[in-house]
Design a protein around this nucleic acid. Structure first.
Lengths: 249, 249
DNA sequence: GCATTGAACCTGTCTGGCATGTTATCGGTT
DNA sequence: AACCGATAACATGCCAGACAGGTTCAATGC
């Protein structure tokens, strides 16, 4: 009979507090670097035990939303998905997140290109060329190149003959676009030479792979992704972009 | 009053337990609907207080991985929708999968060592040395080095100052070491010089990182993991080995 | 055979405590 | 007055024990 007042969803006290705090973080009540109320303060505020408060904080820590420093307090971290109002400052933090991921990706893609140059089969060369061509079509049509570009990189990863490489690439792709899901972007804001360089750099990589020149493939992929990082920084300065627009290629 | 639990490493106890359980869930040790060990069982297993166990469970609940039913226990939930990754089917796969994954890991760890040598902080050097020392203790005690070894590699990844690196290492760990949970195994099957080389190679890597010699760190890590691959192949040839014997380090 | 009951577990929450790291104030020294 | 070191107050990390409910399952009684 009393089942209705309590326990509708996974509603424990800890869950309620953590979602409350999560919302406050998203709303900017606590900005990155701010100190949250101490555990004992939350204990009083919600009239619960410290056990409950600590569970709530543990959830937020696991999600990377806050950081607890012993003796000092609990501090808000960058959210990397501050979707609400354009708090300019918080974009700077999510930049570092993207840059970190790009660094990780670069490590793999450089080696991926090298291995592909050493191991690629005839059919895989064909697939790479087709993907490369498809990127060109998208450029010509003025449509977004993000998907086609990814397909090209994926084709290269598959040419390593190591399934883990394409798997990894797909994995971090979802990391770049966590849960936004809203593409259909307006590509108009992108500089012209962005795309010019894109296709040109791709062509150099593809050639090296076809020729079986592993060292050149590595070097060109490295340059390509370095250029991607630079372009990303430039785009940041114009500030109009959503993360979904990031091509990173 | 306990000098026993001195290992308060970078991650909290709750974080370690939650990632352990998360990995076991991903590995299928607990299939959907299965009951996990009770809180008191986990308390005994990890030698921690119930507070810590509850924080770990709270994290898993918040992620929708498990469900806690009062009076009944903690149950694994359906992970049907792409919660986790393409790295999980590894246990049932062929040996080539392990080798494939090791190749991927090598790419990552080589660069990880190089970046660590360039960027490490004093505190991170300290953490690396401590982990290195801990491996030595395990060797001396004749206990399995698997966990300690991983901690060392993790400490190196953390010294890259790029959070994605330790994250990724934890991710692929489940692929390298399919099931955990039973140490205190019989280490007799492992060749003596296996462990001798292990500590020696680790020392070379650690030295290079401390000295800030990125190129040496890369080269030594590469040699280390190449040796790991060779040792793995030897083990394969020698016996039908259980996956948890694989150290790959 | 079947329903009831009750002990043994389980999770949810609370209280209190100790260890240890951080911070800011206060007092003495220069 | 400016500097500086000791220190008290406060923070988190972790632990131990307790009690209130809910669940499970097997023994008991009919």
């Amino acid at each position: 009979m009393e089942a209705e007042n309590n326990h509708a969803r996974g509603t424990s006290l800890a869950a309620k507090i953590s979602t409350d705090l999560r919302r406050e973080l998203a709303d900017g009540v606590f900005k990155p670097g701010d100190r949250l109320p101490s555990e004992s303060a939350l204990t009083r505020e919600y009239s619960v035990s410290r056990t409950v408060v600590r569970e709530a904080i543990a959830i937020l820590r696991a999600d990377g939303l806050v950081e607890a420093r012993k003796g000092a307090g609990i501090f808000a971290l960058e959210t990397s998905e501050g979707k609400k109002q354009p708090f300019k400052d918080l974009t700077t933090e999510r930049i570092s997140s993207v840059i970190e991921l790009l660094e990780l990706r670069t490590v793999f893609e450089v080696e991926s290109a090298g291995l592909a140059a050493s191991r690629r089969s005839a059919a895989q060369i064909e697939a790479i060329l087709e993907a490369h061509h498809h990127v060109g079509e998208c450029l010509a049509a003025g449509s977004p190149t993000r998907d086609a570009d990814f397909e090209l990189h994926l084709a290269i990863a598959e040419a390593t003959q190591n399934r883990r490489f394409p798997e990894f690439l797909q994995l971090i792709r979802s990391g770049i676009i966590p849960r936004g899901e809203l593409q259909g972007s307006a590509p108009g804001s992108r500089p012209k030479d962005y795309n010019l360089h894109l296709q040109e750099e791709h062509a150099l990589i593809v050639d090296a792979i076809i020729e079986g020149n592993a060292e050149a493939a590595r070097e060109r992929m490295r340059a390509h992704l370095r250029g991607s990082l630079d372009r990303y920084k430039v785009l940041l300065r114009s500030r109009t972009l959503a993360p979904e627009d990031i091509n990173l290629s």
